[in-house]
Design a protein around this nucleic acid. Sequence first.
DNA 1: GATGAATGAGTGTTCATTCAT
DNA 2: TATGAATGAACACTCATTCAT
Lengths: 194, 194, 194, 194
Amino acid sequence: MARVLPGYREQAKERIITDSLPVFIEHGYHKTTMEEIARHLDISKGTLYLYFKNKEGLFREVVAALRARNREELLDLLQREDLPLTFGYIFDLVMRASEDYAAFAFELYAAAIHNKELGEILEEDVREDIMLSREFLDQLKEKGIVKPDIDTCITARGFNALFIGLFTMAQLGISRDEAKQTWEEMCRVWLVKD
Amino acid sequence: MARVLPGYREQAKERIITDSLPVFIEHGYHKTTMEEIARHLDISKGTLYLYFKNKEGLFREVVAALRARNREELLDLLQREDLPLTFGYIFDLVMRASEDYAAFAFELYAAAIHNKELGEILEEDVREDIMLSREFLDQLKEKGIVKPDIDTCITARGFNALFIGLFTMAQLGISRDEAKQTWEEMCRVWLVKD
Amino acid sequence: MARVLPGYREQAKERIITDSLPVFIEHGYHKTTMEEIARHLDISKGTLYLYFKNKEGLFREVVAALRARNREELLDLLQREDLPLTFGYIFDLVMRASEDYAAFAFELYAAAIHNKELGEILEEDVREDIMLSREFLDQLKEKGIVKPDIDTCITARGFNALFIGLFTMAQLGISRDEAKQTWEEMCRVWLVKD
Amino acid sequence: MARVLPGYREQAKERIITDSLPVFIEHGYHKTTMEEIARHLDISKGTLYLYFKNKEGLFREVVAALRARNREELLDLLQREDLPLTFGYIFDLVMRASEDYAAFAFELYAAAIHNKELGEILEEDVREDIMLSREFLDQLKEKGIVKPDIDTCITARGFNALFIGLFTMAQLGISRDEAKQTWEEMCRVWLVKD
DNA sequence: GATGAATGAGTGTTCATTCAT
DNA sequence: TATGAATGAACACTCATTCAT
């Protein structure tokens, strides 16, 4: 690689972030070693520290990139005109987008409990997700798909919490079908005009 | 200590389980060392291995005891005649009972992803919790507090998922009030007769 | 057990020695734990230290008892009138008698290298064995079975060394037949009149 | 140290192997700690694990190197034209070459009893040694030094077994002279024309 | 920028031995 | 005499991080 090119550093960093993701996904944060990452990327361990302060720093950027990617994909999907606006379809969409994240979502949450800074980042993430949901619900309201009298602010929060809960249950072995069925029924009662 | 008393072993084991809990709570499973636990209990590291096969074994029993305690407390509370059967009150109750658990719930979930056996235990736990909720909802149905036409099986699942989601959000910094407000509103829409 | 009987201590000690042997045989000295021995004997670990200074002390007595037993058996056999005095038969006899010993003979030898006292005990053992062989060879000489001109002192030493070497080889995987064939041929050349 | 030199890794590994030998010799395998080895080599414990999977792995390579060195030395010596082909001389030669090995030969043998893989390695070693002896005996036969009618295959086995036995006895305190005298006399009777 | 050899603090676990009862 | 709970020194091994080249 031509190392004098401007932007080389950025590109290299991005490559590390992208290619580290599957390694972290395979074993989770704790059980993934810097050694393993370096081996998979076919670079030296030292190089990792050239671009990231430490393992945690690398991991954060990996997670941030994953979240950014997921959100983008999701936004793209949600804005397609031909989207079948059934709740079941939305569920499948978000669930699929969250799949990769699952491998270390809980490790992140666990770490956030003892790490204030990380906690703030994750809180911000959650709030953004809720905002997204709210916008989505507002759209559905306009289209007359959901009841006009719901408070989209609170409901978006409940909407996301329900998803997080079902996602958690799914990770623990509750079948995808059970989760989806629950999601659809709850959404129907919550949101749909009788 | 009277070491020859019958039942001494059981008591000693129980004491270790009880007194290890706060240590695990303080730093979570991974960052808690056997050394630290021993120091807090004022016993030697070797003694820990007298009662538990390894760190994981100790942790499992600590978690099991905590869950048993929580469930018992909860059942006791729910069966009191004078219980104010508002959803907000229930929320506070369960939230408080889950507080200690929070410190490593996510670590458990994370571990379960790569550990099938643990996964099965946690799934069983979740299913038990759902059954409990279902019974509770059935009671409320009988008392005419919730709508007669809801499917308590599915709703119990949604009920628990919503709680787990709000619990997760609360750990990540969403305020207790926001969570509670969301809970109350969602429950109202789901369950209460208009 | 009647603990006031005179000789109780001796009997108890002997029982421990006898019953520890199979435990040591199973895993060798190093990998056998006092815990394991106590469990097999159905007594407490503390009791072991009532009769023996430490693990090494117990082991020494176990080994001494085994050697005594082996020697006695061997002497008995060698003195039977109807003994078929072929070298192959002798080989089988001694080999069988040494079988149990094999499990830790090498550990003993290894330890003797760094432990002078143990070294002296084992040297004494070896010298006794050589004396025994010498007596045996003298008998065979009298009976005219071996050549009259051999120096039974030196030959006994060679006789035993050859056995130890073949025994060692047998432990390392050389087949019993190869060992026996070698023994018979060497003895023939050494000892038998042409 | 020039760490980027090609072959540095190999040299470093070899240095560890070479310099670990005396440490293992001093206390034997079991009582030698990785800590001790690192201290003697003036490197960190971690570095040892950079080059060897674990203690056993290091030990195996140490032993292999020692055996290779011994065999090479021996072959060199045996092929010298001016070799005084007396059995006593050979004995001294091999005995000296085996001296270092003595410190853990018995530990190896002991381990082989419970470790099939190691057992196979050692058996192979023994068979190689026997082959070597056989070739040597064949040479002596050609030169007319030993009797023409001996079966060099079986005799080589006996030859080696006798050596192993005397070597063992020597480690247990039998004097070198006694051993050598026995060796010479046995060889004379076995091998030399009257 | 890149390397990869070196580090060393940290951790779970074992087990012979002791001693109060 | 017998117990068995308690000890604590030891030890192998890991891995994030550093830094000379």
